[in-house]
Write a protein that binds this DNA or RNA. Structure first.
Lengths: 213, 213
DNA sequence: GCCCGCTTCCGGAAAGACACTTACGCAGCC
DNA sequence: GGCTGCGTAAGTGTCTTTCCGGAAGCGGGC
């Protein structure tokens, strides 16, 4: 069952020893909400290991997964001193956190974050193209290619996300995602050993569908 | 008529004196493509004055305006040493450009870019929510509020974008954008003096529509 | 007056919403 | 150990809604 970080490791605001340190490593289980949209933004965080998703909510409950993060990616960004997104682990994860004002004192850290921000901004630009202009089938194909870089050809991908989470990432409903998986299967582009184990069968057709991504 | 920067000020690659300098200010007219998606990424740019849009294209010509930039915003980001987006001015603009490797030598510049990247990344997160989860009417309401910060209450907004450009920004078609404007007008939320002059009449209703943005 | 961009109208396609079925994992039990 | 039942997640069928897509009409600015 999914639970909040507050319930198992304690919220940052309730553990002064955690807040006071400049750098802190953190092990968290899967499906833990590491921080909440709107909370005061005291720290900035880096994924060391594992996968994290950033989400935003509309007042009526509609959700968007705005970013998927892996090792090296940075989160905990602030707008008006409050976190702009919630962050939830998809897998067990290791996270490093820094005090926000450490950025001024640590030029090496700032330089690393700058490079990473540039990469993440480019990924967000691609994602805007996906959300704004691609069909359901194209979005799912793009998503699978993104999780399956050219390196791991022939390998089987273990999805750490439910259909609902994928849908919230791609701006679709879970039914549409499910239908898209079935359609890709029917066309012979992918094979699903189980619902969460995908193998890309025809990579070039997938690339064509995803807009040569 | 819209034209490419190459045709009026010369491409950076053809003006060595421009390329060699570390910092260069640039005046460009409206509707000029300052840089092209895929070109080798030699410089990083800041908007000093005016408005710039970043666009991405799919092979079949579908376009997404991925970001709208104003004074202070940064563009010219690279993925694999190539520009990830094209950049086109919406208005006459002043642009400062830096050599990419100046980032290592100039910590003040790096610090400024870091802060700006953080802000732009947050805006992209919001935009993902808009593109993934909002209806056409909500998207247009959000768009107008974003261009009309609380400060300029009662003022009239002069749109620098065509319906097609707004549609490409919001992931809609120009007809749907036009319909949304008409619906907002019909409901009394906005007044259109002309097609490109908007006045927000009922700000609280607009906010509710846009998800309290 | 003409032209470009905007608006409006219509039919059609894609995705959403809802309901139901199926598959799987787990805990309790015989 | 294996059977059984429950709970969650995924797949599918049907209908509805929203948005797209072409076309025609409108209107302001040069």
């Amino acid at each position: 069952m999914r639970q909040n970080i507050d319930e198992r490791t304690g919220s940052p605001t309730r553990q002064p020893s955690f807040v006071e340190s400049h750098v802190q490593n953190l092990r968290v289980a899967a499906h833990v909400t590491v921080l909440h949209e709107g909370d005061p933004a005291r720290r900035i965080m880096e994924v060391v290991e594992g996968a994290v998703m950033l989400t935003k909510l509309l007042p009526d409950g509609r959700r968007q997964v705005v970013e998927l993060l892996g090792p090296g990616d940075v989160f905990g960004l602030a707008h008006d001193e409050a976190y702009a997104c919630s962050a939830e682990t998809l897998t067990p994860a290791t996270i490093t956190t820094h005090e926000r004002n450490a950025l001024e004192r640590d030029p090496a850290l700032a330089a690393r974050l700058l490079r990473r921000f540039e990469a993440q901004l480019c990924v967000m630009h691609s994602h805007a193209l996906v959300l704004g202009r691609m069909s359901a089938l194209e979005r799912v194909a793009f998503f699978l290619l993104r999780l399956m870089p050219d390196g791991m050809v022939g390998g089987t991908l273990r999805l750490a996300m439910t259909r609902q989470e994928i849908a919230d990432f791609l701006g679709l409903t879970l039914e549409t995602v499910s239908r898209a998986f079935s359609e890709l299967k029917r066309r012979g582009l992918v094979v699903l050993q189980r619902a969460d184990e995908v193998r890309i069968q025809d990579r070039s057709s997938m690339r064509r569908l995803a807009g040569a991504a």
